[in-house]
Design a protein around this nucleic acid. Sequence first.
RNA 1: GGCCCGUUCGUCUAAGGGUUAGGACACCACCCUUUCACGGUGGUGAUACGAGUUCGAAUCUCGUACGGGCUACCA
Length: 507
Amino acid sequence: MGKKVRVRFAPSPTGGLHLGGVRTVLYNYLFAKKQGGDFIVRIEDTDQSRFVEGAEEYIFDCLKWCGLEPDESVQQGGNYGPYRQSERKELYRPYAEQLVKEGHAYYAFDTPEDLEKMRHESIPDQPHSPQYDHTIRMKMRNSLTLSAGETEKLLAEGANHVIRIKMPVNETASFIDMIRGEVRFDTSLVDDKVLLKADGMPTYHLAVVVDDYLMKISHAFRGEEWLPSAPVHILLWKYLFGLDQMPQWAHFPLILGPNGKLSKRDGAKYGFPVFAMSWTDPKTQERTEGFQEKGFLPEALINLLALLGWNDGTEQEIFTIKELIDKFSMERVHSAGAKFDYEKAKWFNHEWIKRSTVHSFQSTVKTLLAQNNITVSDDVMLDKVIGLVKDRCTLLPDFVQQSSFFFKSPETLDVDAVKPKWNEAKKLFFAELIRNYELSPDWLAQSLETNFKEIAAVNDLKPGELMLPFRIMLVGSKFGPGVFEIAEILGKEETGKRIHTALKIFG
RNA sequence: GGCCCGUUCGUCUAAGGGUUAGGACACCACCCUUUCACGGUGGUGAUACGAGUUCGAAUCUCGUACGGGCUACCA
C-alpha cells in the first residue's frame, strides 16, 4: 500500500460529452482529490475511422467549465505521456506479441468476409451469438490452425492480420468491484477479443491495460457498460503485469434516459440537454444544446450529477465541490442505474442561483440582456435588480424576462388585465399619485407605499384594486417583485413617465 | 439466444435483521403574498412476486418475473 492514488478519465473524442461522462469525471475527480491523488485525462483515439474534428478540445472545454481540471493530460502535460493513445501506437505491439509468444494470444488472418460468413451461417443449432471463441477458433484462419511456417510466411508477406487473445477454457476470472463486490465470469463464455487491429492500433482492451499500467493508475473507474469486458482485462493483467498490479476497479451505474441508457445520439430529443456544453457535429452541422447554454450553473450540474447515484447518508442535497471532495466515498455509490429527472435538475439550478451572490451574476446578466438589445450602463442599479429577481430565476435566461423591464419600458401593456375594472376614479387616483410622487422628498419603496395607500384611502379606493394597474404600468405584465420596490429602482422620473404613458393607453 | 448488472413512493434516494419504511423533486391543499415567485405547513404515494433462514426480513439465501447493459479489427 502507500501507493499514490492516480485515476484517469479516458474518453474517446467522438462527439459531445454527455451526463454519464461528466459524472464519471466527477467521481474520478472527487475520489482523487479526497485522497490527495492525481486525476489524469487520457485520450482514447485508437479508432481512426471515428476521428471527429474538434471533439478533443471540446472535452477539455467542458471539463474547464465544470471546474474539473486534470493534473495530467494532453493539455497539462505530465510525466507519463503521451496522453493520446494514437501517439503511443508503437508501444502496444510488443505486448501483444509477447502474449502470442507465451501462448495467450494468436495471429488471425481472417478477412472481414470470413468473419461475416462465420457469424451468419456457422451455427445452425443456435439462434444467436456466433462469436469468435474457443468453440470455433480452430475452424478459422489463424496461427493456431496454420502451420508455423505458413504463419511466418504470411507475416513476412505483410498479410493483413490482427492479434486475438486466446481465452482459456473453464477458468473463472473474478475481481472485487468497489461498488458491487465480487463479480465472476466463466472464461469459456467470453470470445477471443481482438487486441491489436490490422492497422497496428490496439483495441481498447489492450490499450487500457497497457496504459493503466504504464501510467501507474491505482484505481480504474468506468461505466457499467464495461463490466462484460472485465474478464478480458483481468486476463491481460494476469499475463502481462501480474494481478497484484491491477488497479482497483469500480463500475458506475448507468444514467438512464426515458428509454434506457442515455445516448449521445439522442441529443436533446428528450426535451432536456444531455451534453455539458453545446456540441455541433462538424459533418452535419447539427447543433445539440448543452447544460451551459440552457442556463445551468456549473456548480448545479456538478451537484446534481454527484447526487445521481451517490449520497452522503444524511439528508443534505446541496453540496459545494469542496464538500463533495470531503464527503465522497466509493462505497456509497449506488449500484442500480438512475433515470435522469430534468425537473429535479432544474430545482438544483434554482437552489444554486438563490445561493449565489448578486455580484456573480453581473456579467452574465449583462450579456444576456445585451443579446436582447438592452444595454446596462448602471452597475449599481443592475446589482439591485439582480438581488430583487434572482430568487425567481430557475435557469439563467429567466433573468431576461425578470429584469428587462427595469432597463426598458415595456413595449406592450397587459391592458386586458386592467380594462374591465378601469374607471374614472382610478384614473384620477393615478393623476393624483403622480403629483404626490413628484413632491416626494425621498424615493424609497416604503414611503412610496405609504403615500400610495394614503391617497387610496382619501379617495375611498381599495389599494388592492390599484396595485395591479400600477404593476401593469411599470412592468407591463403580471409578474415581478413588489411594485414599490420596482418603482424605487426605476426612479422618480421613469416611474412618472410610465404612469403617464399607461394612462393614455388605458383611456 | 448467451453472459453480466440491477429491482424501496411517478423520479432520485435513506433505512447495512426490530422504524408508524425517512428525505428531496414533481403533484395536490392550505398559509404568506392586494401580481408572479420565494418561503412555511400538511397531504397523496413505495419495499416486484414466491419460497426459505430467523422470535423477527426492505435488509440474508434461492427461485421467478421485470428492467438495463454487453455480445465489432467502437470506445
